[in-house]
Design a protein around this nucleic acid. Structure first.
Lengths: 243, 243
DNA sequence: AAAATAAACGTAAATATGACGTTTATAAGT
DNA sequence: ACTTATAAACGTCATATTTACGTTTATTTT
């Protein structure tokens, strides 16, 4: 039996948003819907994604998908993995049926993650029932999207230890303790504040500002910024992290 | 003007092979050929790759492609990036023509790299004119394959500093100096032998064997092995490499 | 003015690193 | 049997980093 296969290529986006107030790392998810005449909602969540347009690069698709959902452009994004199992979009019960069909669709998705601040996203009037979920308490997810999120999260954990992407999740001006809270949220560990503080302040690319917190009800903390210029200069040499 | 687009999905494989004797990290390339009636060779090289079969996962395609070229199975492989620019397979001169065509093909490729020992590959009687090239002196490459190789190499450089993948490129029993030579080849740096030696020997997962080199014309070196079991135990805790 | 508290500073021991000098075991040559 | 050449292996010291804690300070609230 000869059976046709219809290939699709899509981009799925894991949008990580950090909430500096609740100190939680979240993922932005939308309600799954069936693509019939009307949008019929299903009772689980999925990542946002879309198929790749004709003259579009994969990066451009990812950027478009993020903009459509959040209105944001120019956010940190990283392509981290392609998912292409033949049956990745099917429920187990559909499998027997599909094996005998005359054709079936197959969608390979290239997965990206974005790093941004939850406060930068306005979820009012969005058409997707989009909602933030803490990365450690995800809802039921459609397709293979739970796996995609978990792999994105793993990549983020590793990457945040070797590159200064953490600062994409923080405001331009931040306190040392806010950085520590963020590391603790992402990695799920406790860090000694006194050692962390010393280590971070000693970095040349962490620059103390002439400014302190305002509107806090305790001793206001010193504000710092991250200098990408300094970072890039410093790290031209330091290839040998360990071995 | 309405124009059709034909989607293809392929897997391309960057096969890294380390030659312990010449101490060089190589990439296995084949001659590019035109898919007309007969195989017409072109004067540049490309990676091995193939389209993804109907019921195949991406990983399975990569495994199949490696086996077809080298006969090898069970080698370390890593999917590291998808390349999907709309015109990535075209020469610049084709671009004007294609923009007005009624349809054009577009191939998204999911790129993998493999780590293995050159000596494990038998290149006699291969149908692809396959040849090893040192990673720092690549020949002219077709399509966007030079970029793919360079990105694979970058990924390898970073990854070999944080994970023990280096040992996939060495025989089961190796000397300290062989490990040093390999790091130096990959990273393109010089490492102090005395410090490197101390550091490596202190790792719990580097295990001294009851064996020495044979057939060398100098003092024969102690042989060691890498223990994945010990490594996995040790690194359950050590999440915080730095920060 | 006192209390509460997060921010910020300090210290000493242990460990790791970087930059070197020295000794040793072996095969090959005499 | 001795010497030589050479890669392998070991040693040292100063400096830097990490770990595990204790203490002080600046600010707001009571």
């Amino acid at each position: 039996m000869k059976s046709e296969i219809i290939l699709n290529i899509s981009v799925d986006c894991v949008v990580f948003g950090y909430d500096i107030h609740t100190k939680s790392l979240n993922v932005l998810l939308i309600k799954r819907y069936l693509e019939s005449e009307k949008m019929v909602l299903v009772d689980d969540y999925v990542l946002t994604g879309y198929h790749v347009y004709k003259n579009e690069t994969l990066d451009e698709t990812a950027t478009r998908v993020l903009k459509e959902l959040t209105g944001l452009t120019d956010q940190y994004k990283k392509q981290f993995k392609a998912f292409g199992d033949p049956d990745r979009l099917l429920n187990p019960k559909d499998l027997i049926w599909i094996k005998n069909a005359e054709f079936h669709e197959r969608t390979t998705t290239v997965a990206y993650y974005f790093l941004l601040k939850t406060e930068d996203v306005n979820l009012k009037n969005n058409n997707y029932h989009a909602k933030w979920f803490p990365v450690d308490t995800l809802p039921e997810l459609g397709f293979d999207h739970e796996q995609i999120i978990l792999e994105a999260y793993e990549d983020l954990k590793v990457k945040c230890l070797s590159e200064p992407i953490i600062f994409k999740l923080l405001p331009d001006k931040f306190t040392i303790n806010e950085v520590q809270d963020l590391y603790q949220s992402i990695l799920g560990i406790d860090i000694d504040n006194r050692n962390f503080r010393r280590k971070l302040i000693n970095k040349k690319y962490i620059i103390a500002l002439d400014e302190k917190q305002v509107g806090v009800s305790k001793k206001p903390a010193q504000l710092y910024m991250f200098s990408k210029e300094v970072y890039d200069k410093v790290f031209q040499k330091n290839y040998l992290i360990s071995i």
